[in-house]
């Protein structure tokens, strides 16, 4: 998906002469914007989709910020909003792009992300294929397994933090991670066997 985005303005330039957004939100974006972007990529969005996803997340945050009651940490609440929004976004895109059930994670130049620069073309191609396979296997998982595996394996969060984000018991998280890994292994084998 290619989309032309406007160039960023010069520093200090007014944004279209419109009123500026809430200062709280600006600092929230500054602190968490890149992390939400990383989460979007880990949820399987490509870089341009991830940028759209980040926009969507922070627009939702703006609309709901006044409803944040301070019962959870702001970062936990933000993660909840972001994870739900991004996984929904990903699901919609997968539905729209029936011909491509998963996206290769690419950077803004369209290159595969996290490629070992020392690897030769064959190795890079093989890594890209493997990456697609893993992404596809992850996409096949039910959401409850996918979200815990993304948060644990890719975001590196503790069971306790995951439980807080998902609003569930720590034991449930433990169980879902265990079962999710088993399902992921099964899906990977199925894909390897061409099923």
């Amino acid at each position: 998906m290619t989309r032309a985005h406007p160039d960023p303005p010069q520093e200090g330039a007014p944004v279209g002469g419109r009123p500026r957004p809430d200062g709280r939100l600006e600092s929230l974006f500054r602190d968490y914007g890149p992390r939400v972007y990383g989460l979007a990529l880990r949820c399987g969005l490509d870089p341009l989709e991830a940028e759209d996803g980040v926009q969507e997340v922070f627009l939702k945050v703006q609309r709901r910020l006044d409803t944040f009651r301070g019962e959870a940490k702001l970062s936990t609440w933000l993660y909840q909003v972001a994870l739900n929004t991004l996984l929904d976004h990903r699901r919609k895109l997968v539905r729209q792009k029936r011909m491509q059930p998963f996206a290769v994670v690419t950077d803004e130049r369209g290159e595969v992300a996290a490629v070992d620069p020392g690897a030769g073309p064959d190795e890079q191609s093989s890594a890209a294929e493997r990456r697609q396979l893993v992404r596809s296997a992850l996409d096949r998982l039910p959401r409850k397994f996918k979200e815990v595996l993304v948060l644990r394996e890719l975001e590196g969060l503790s069971y306790r933090d995951i439980a807080r984000i998902l609003g569930t018991a720590q034991g449930t998280v433990e169980s879902r991670i265990f079962r999710g890994r088993a399902r992921l292994g099964v899906e990977l084998r199925r894909l390897e066997e061409g099923l």
Binding site: H5, P6, P8, P21, G38, P47, Q62, E108
Partner: peptide, 25 residues
């Protein structure tokens, strides 16, 4: 870990900040 993305480039962050401000404004 193959799915771990590269860190967001400075250009991507700047672009997002711009879109964020414009969108929210």
């Amino acid at each position: 870990q193959l799915l771990q993305p590269a860190a967001a480039s400075a250009e991507a962050v700047a672009r997002m900040s711009f879109r964020f401000e414009e969108g929210l404004a």
